[in-house]
Design a protein around this nucleic acid. Structure first.
Lengths: 149, 149
DNA sequence: ACCAGATACTTGCACACGCACTATATCGGC
DNA sequence: GCCGATATAGTGCGTGTGCAAGTATCTGGT
């Protein structure tokens, strides 16, 4: 056994904790958003990401990164949302390979309606996680994270 | 705007960071384990969880929780691994509704072969994340997590 | 001007997942 | 002991996903 094995075990343990917390939150959100607003978590993530770029466009590939999705999944996700009238594709003139996406008013409105549910469920899920011994430290660390930007 | 809005925004930001880091790690692991050992991340997680219960059995439902999976997905996952000869189902006598699962020698061996890859890729992914400004704080927090047990 | 290679999105296909439902086993009140 | 309520695992079905291949566009070297 080498000297770095402890570090590896700590990393593995951290990854398991991270995955567990992620799963817990995602499942809660998925059920709530699906039931209440007919939106999946990734769909919400995309709408949210677009709204955050307020007034600015996002390329498909940026969207893919923001949602941690493959290119093909992003194509179909955007297609779904476009067909529901929540966003629009905009061919951009300077690089005709690229496609920009933009929230429609309907998209903004749905997002506004959904955000309270999202925030409430997220808060609840975190509270629930904090009550779980092996997850509590990570939840705590999450709260102390320096506010990015 | 209420007084708690900052807290909500911090939580949302934390969740986005968590999801981003999780996605990054999972994608890296998925590709590496799939390419090198024909295993998915959940499959590895299950084998690892079983090995960690060394000498002890796990019920399907515990496995489902450990892998953050639904009951039905767990059934099929166990079926796949059983057909590959990596684990065995064991009907338990005291509660005939329950089913225990146990690693076979082949399962242990495959896990032993796969673990180095897993650990190396995990280390690399964390290092990569640490080089990303918005992820670095969370990676740092992960390392400082108290060793659970 | 041209062509090879890189980049951005899309499409074909196989597959793992969750939900709703079913089957079997256990437990508690009577 | 019996029967409804609950728990555990498995099945049918629809759907979202990633990979690999395909198409269109851009870029740089010659």
């Amino acid at each position: 056994m080498g000297i770095g094995d402890d570090a590896i075990e700590i990393r593995a343990q951290g990854w398991r904790t991270l995955a567990a917390l992620h799963g817990l939150i995602e499942t809660s959100l998925e059920r709530a958003l699906q039931a209440g607003h007919d939106l999946s978590v990734v769909e919400y993530t995309v709408l949210d990401a677009l709204s955050r770029q307020d007034g600015w466009h996002m390329r498909m590939s940026q969207l893919a990164r923001a949602a941690a999705l493959s290119g093909s999944a992003t194509t179909r996700l955007v297609t779904r949302l476009e067909q529901r009238g929540l966003l629009t594709r905009i061919l951009c003139a300077d690089d005709r390979r690229g496609i920009y996406t933009e929230l429609t008013p309907a998209g903004s409105e749905l997002l506004a309606q959904t955000r309270p549910t999202h925030d409430r469920v997220l808060t609840d899920a975190l509270a629930q996680a904090e009550a779980t011994p092996e997850l509590a430290p990570l939840v705590d660390a999450l709260h102390r994270l320096p506010a990015a930007r």
